[in-house]
Simulated scan of single mutants.
Amino acid sequence: MVVPPSSEELLQGKATFMCLANKGFPSGWSLTWKVDGRSSSSSWEQSRSPGVVQKDGLYRWSSTLRLPADQWRKVGSVTCEATQGSQTPVTETLRRDQCSQS
């Protein structure tokens, strides 16, 4: 699940996206970001939270992507890609036109 930036944050010139993942073990997963289908750029800031154990013994964790707000206004989408080993990646894409505050 990709959480979009708030309208208040965009007014401050930033756009922060959060990718939420759960039901696994964070050490076995890689969370990566793509903007308009392209992998990382020097103007992006990415970070990852440590995993939090849930009642079922599996984890919940997240990855954060920060872009300048003016860059977000120029792109069409951001994608969070979760990969575990050689399995097919799981992707979630947020299109800018899906966001009311864009």
Results as ranks from 00 to 15, higher is better:
Val2Ser: 08
Pro89Trp: 06
Leu11His: 15
Pro68Ser: 06
Asp56Glu: 06
Val53Arg: 12
Leu58Thr: 15
Gly13His: 00
Asp36Cys: 08
Arg48Ser: 09
Asn22Thr: 01
Ser63Cys: 13
Lys55Gln: 11
Pro26Arg: 11
Ala82Cys: 04
Ser27Arg: 11
Val35Lys: 07
Phe17Leu: 06
Arg60Phe: 06
Ser6Cys: 07
Ser27Gly: 13
Val78Ile: 15
Thr79Lys: 00
Glu9Pro: 00
Gly76Thr: 13
Thr64Trp: 05
Asp36Ala: 07
Gly37Ser: 04
Leu65Thr: 05
Gln12Leu: 15
Pro68Glu: 11
Val3Lys: 04
Glu8Cys: 05
Ser27Leu: 10
Gly51Ser: 08
Val90Glu: 15
Leu58Trp: 13
Asp70Cys: 06
Asp56Thr: 05
Lys74Ile: 01
Thr83Trp: 01
Thr79His: 03
Pro89Phe: 04
Trp44Gly: 08
Phe25Arg: 12
Asp70Asn: 12
Gln84Arg: 14
Ser30Met: 10
Tyr59Gln: 13
Thr32Val: 00
Arg60Tyr: 07
Asp97Tyr: 02
Ser7Cys: 14
Leu58Asp: 15
Ser47Asp: 13
Phe25Asp: 15
Gln12Val: 08
Ser100Ala: 15
Trp61Glu: 10
Leu67Cys: 12
Gln84Cys: 11
Thr93Gln: 12
Thr88Ala: 04
Pro89Leu: 06
Ser27Ile: 05
Asp56Asn: 15
Gln12Pro: 05
Gln84His: 14
Glu8Ile: 07
Ser30Val: 12
Ser49Tyr: 01
Ser49His: 04
Cys99Phe: 00
Lys55Ile: 07
Pro68Met: 03
Trp72Gln: 13
Leu58Phe: 11
Leu31Ser: 10
Thr64Cys: 00
Met18Arg: 14
Leu11Phe: 13
Ser77Pro: 06
Pro68Val: 02
Gly85Thr: 09
Trp44Gln: 14
Leu94Ala: 12
Gln54Met: 15
